[in-house]
């Protein structure tokens, strides 16, 4: 795992400018969504809606790191020949990948959360800012089911040779059924049922309750633990993928 942390740290140090830019975009996009809502509501929209979008954007970045980034990293390792060397080493490719993800999440999530917390501190006070940071930490700790979905979809990478269609599926699921930008309660009942099958909405609502409501909805802990089955599924599928690569030799796709 240490190798994965080292790799992620070194690569992130090379692109801190881009990461900073993404963090700065959090309040920008939150303000845009708020303005859209304000316009649609004929000029009636309270500050809480802006804060809702702000925390939602932080969660969106974290969800993208857990889903899209993981897939793109696997894609990059595959096309660059690194996965083959990783598989030929005594280290576990999954452990290296998870270490990479954790550091990626810490860097991307922390940047976005720090900016959001600073704005919340100015608008709502220090307590809410601290709660936002705590919510981000909780969201990080409970993001494994999303990683699991990405790992499961990675099974199709050797055939598709491009992570883009797979990450697109996850991004659409996060944005439309994920409850990060709007509550899933406004969706039709059938889509709400679909949303409950996926791990995003409960994850987002739990973090948002901690950050903006200063309360942890303990009743959601059960479903959150249940969604860990997605992580178990992802790990199992990853194992199947690595075994199939050992049979086919198709580690690299370039």
């Amino acid at each position: 795992m240490r190798a994965g942390f080292y790799l992620a740290l070194r690569l992130n140090l090379r692109q801190y400018g881009a990461l900073l830019l993404v963090s700065v975009l959090v309040p920008f996009f939150a303000a845009l969504f708020y303005l859209a809502g304000w316009t649609a509501a004929g000029g009636r929209s309270d500050l809480d809606k802006f804060l809702y979008q702000l925390v939602g954007m932080v969660l969106l970045i974290m969800a993208q790191t857990a889903s899209s980034n993981v897939l793109w990293h696997i894609g990059a390792l595959t096309s660059g020949g690194q996965l083959e060397y990783l598989a030929a080493s005594p280290s576990s490719p999954l452990a290296v990948l998870l270490a990479f993800y954790l550091l990626d999440l810490a860097v991307a999530g922390l940047g976005a959360a720090a900016i959001a917390a600073a704005i919340i501190a100015a608008l709502r006070g220090a307590l809410f800012a601290l709660a936002t940071l705590l919510a981000t930490a909780i969201a990080s700790a409970t993001s494994l089911p999303i990683v699991g979905l990405a790992l499961a979809l990675a099974y199709f990478l050797p055939s598709l040779r491009n992570p883009s269609p797979l990450s697109m599926i996850l991004n659409v699921a996060v944005v439309f059924f994920g409850g990060v930008l709007y509550p899933v309660g406004i969706l039709p009942a059938s889509l709400q049922a679909l949303s409950r099958l996926l791990p995003f909405a409960t994850w987002a609502e739990f973090a948002r309750s901690v950050g903006l409501g200063l309360q942890a909805p303990l009743r959601e802990l059960g479903p959150l633990a249940g969604y860990l089955a997605y992580f178990a599924l992802g790990v199992a599928v990853w194992g199947v993928l690595m075994r199939s690569l050992r049979r086919s030799g198709l580690y690299h796709v370039w």
Binding site: L7, R10, L11, G80, E84, P90, S91, H252
Partner: peptide
């Protein structure tokens, strides 16, 4: 020409691979 991270230096790439071997 494959198997390395383009943005990392030769030294960093080798350290990463060394850590993979424990």
């Amino acid at each position: 020409d494959k198997g390395f991270f383009g943005r990392l230096s030769g030294l960093e790439n080798l350290i990463y691979y060394g850590m993979l071997y424990g």
